[in-house]
Design a protein around this nucleic acid. Structure first.
Lengths: 338, 338
DNA sequence: CTGAAAGCGCTAACAG
DNA sequence: CTGTTAGCGCTTTCAG
């Protein structure tokens, strides 16, 4: 025989009770240092490992958190995954991966996993709650959920995010300061808050500088490479094309730059481009991309920290935690030609 | 009162036994379609969700798999994460994220999670097993583990990978066919098998073409951007610098290209560069990177498929599954200057 | 400080 | 086809 040892095996081997073993193994103060040592020793010798399912059932916790994003394939999330994972593991939690692909069915599934006991809490980065009509997926108000990156208005959950309006405004101000007047903006999928915020920042900066936003200067994209190229193409089909473009994310910015190159336009010689996000390799690009840096590592860490606090019975911050985003001026912006 | 409903609540509400409810909910054939319907209905009405911890304890499975990589922050893994997740979820498994950072402690921890019952199986992409000396972490030979991406010799576990030697050889042959003779290779951390294999492919191609590998033509890197730049710099400090470089991964290739640009050398005009991996945005770079494409989506899918097979009692393939890698010729390679 | 006993919620024999 | 029963391995009262 060679089954997995259980607590009882250690107990009988040592002539103590299972309860004592359990206590010793979980560092309870209710056990002599000496017995604890003995127990630990034989546990080690027997190569004992606690059965997590049993423990989870008994304690009604899973010691896991769920991290839900729209697309795990998007490099944008990397740093966040990483810092969430690091913070979680440091607190003894494991991390389950959630990927919705913007599919409402899946969004619901992950909320269900929370109720199932698959995970004790969740970091939600999809900017959406399951549809509110179906009473089924109504969430307890104090559910251990932290919204990160995106905003879900009136959700009542803690938020960790950047100020997209202000950051966008700063980006556009940079272009204005360089002397640009005809500045366009390639938006994200714009009914969504984050995209709307970035556009709002663009508009505010333009307005503040007394610049107008001509018809067609706000083409829509979907945050993917190709849509950046397409929007850029549309922009240069205009009678008066822009001399600078503020693009709602880096990926579309790369698409736009690619398109500009294909049209024989130099960046930043002919056209300046500013992105948003500061992806992993944005600096390694040629020319290195001028972009708004999101403090993704901090976002992940803070979100997880708040979640841990909630999970340990603490109080989450009432107000959204707003982290600073900073413009990184690199090689894709320059004064306009003349 | 408003506790979470359990199976017993449904049972009493309907005047049936818990067993019947359990069966109905798990689609057992041992229950009338009609009772099943009734049970499902009230389960729905009561907003019932099974408690996974209880189920896991009882069934001795967690319906989760562990996906372990060296660095979740590396964009290289994205497609794999994604396809593993998709394949797993389709089979009803959730995915736990493992990140070792090459730390032996952590490598062990994830193996322990397998024994703990945190997960039923594991996809290991670190190229390492926990040190074999400590008998503690000896693995049962038939453990539900699939090695992907990297090779662990004599481990006895199923592998899903590409032929790094052949792929590298093809990359170098492309350079040779363009007319290059002085071809260098920036390696990965070379005691490791994957890096050694890529170097081996380089050497074989050179030898087959009757070309020699001069002293200093194989500088070492560590797969990171900066090391590519450094290695490149070393290469061009040589008396006879190369006209082409085969770099062991894309990230270092970007570093190398950056360095070449800084030294005033045009790519591909003065120097050709070939990478390896075909990262997310390698095509969007300027110039678009010529590189070896790894079928990462397939690697993830196949690895997970094999794992699922093992988990359902099936037989894993004896021989390594070798997927085709293909050279993508793009804009960083051209004939040598004269 | 330690032991005895109960039970978390579910599923799987085994009987009917 | 359905019900009864037992128990997965652990933690945690409650007694001592």
């Amino acid at each position: 025989m060679n089954r997995r040892p259980k607590i009882k095996d250690i107990a009988t081997a040592l002539g103590v009770s299972p309860a004592t073993v359990s206590r010793a193994l979980s560092d309870s103060a209710l056990v002599t240092a000496e017995t604890r040592a003995r127990i630990r020793e034989t546990a080690e010798a027997l190569n004992y490992r606690p059965n997590v399912s049993a423990r989870n059932l008994r304690t009604a916790r899973s010691m896991a958190v769920l991290m839900v994003v729209r697309d795990v394939g998007n490099p944008f999330y990397l740093d966040i995954l990483k810092s969430v994972e690091a913070t979680a593991r440091a607190a003894g939690y494991s991390v389950l991966m959630g990927n919705t692909e913007n599919d409402p069915e899946r969004e619901i599934e992950y909320f269900d996993m929370l109720r199932d006991g698959h995970a004790d809490g969740m970091i939600l980065m999809t900017g959406k709650l399951p549809q509110e009509d179906g009473a089924h997926h109504k969430l307890p108000p104090g559910a251990p959920i932290v919204i990160a990156l995106e905003t879900i208005e009136d959700s009542g959950f803690p938020h960790v995010q950047i100020d997209n309006v202000a950051a966008s405004q700063a980006a556009v101000e940079h272009l204005i300061a360089l002397g640009h007047r005809r500045i366009a903006h390639i938006t994200g999928p714009v009914p969504e808050i984050m995209s709307a915020d970035r556009r709002e920042g663009y508009r505010q900066a333009m307005r503040a500088a007394g610049l107008c936003v001509p018809e067609g200067y706000e083409p829509h994209g979907n945050y993917l490479l190709h849509s950046g190229a397409a929007a850029c193409k549309a922009l240069f089909a205009l009678a008066e094309p822009p001399t600078a473009i503020f693009v709602a994310n880096d990926e579309m910015a790369f698409g736009a730059i690619h398109q500009l190159r294909n049209m024989g336009r130099d960046v930043p010689g002919d056209v300046s481009v500013v992105g948003f996000d500061d992806l992993y390799l944005s600096e390694a690009f040629y020319p290195p991309l001028t972009t708004v840096h999101q403090p993704r590592i901090d976002i992940g860490r803070q979100a997880m920290t708040i979640l841990l606090k909630i999970l340990s019975g603490g109080q989450a911050p009432e107000a959204p935690v707003v982290l600073p985003a900073t413009l990184r001026v690199r090689g894709t912006t320059a004064p306009p030609k003349s």
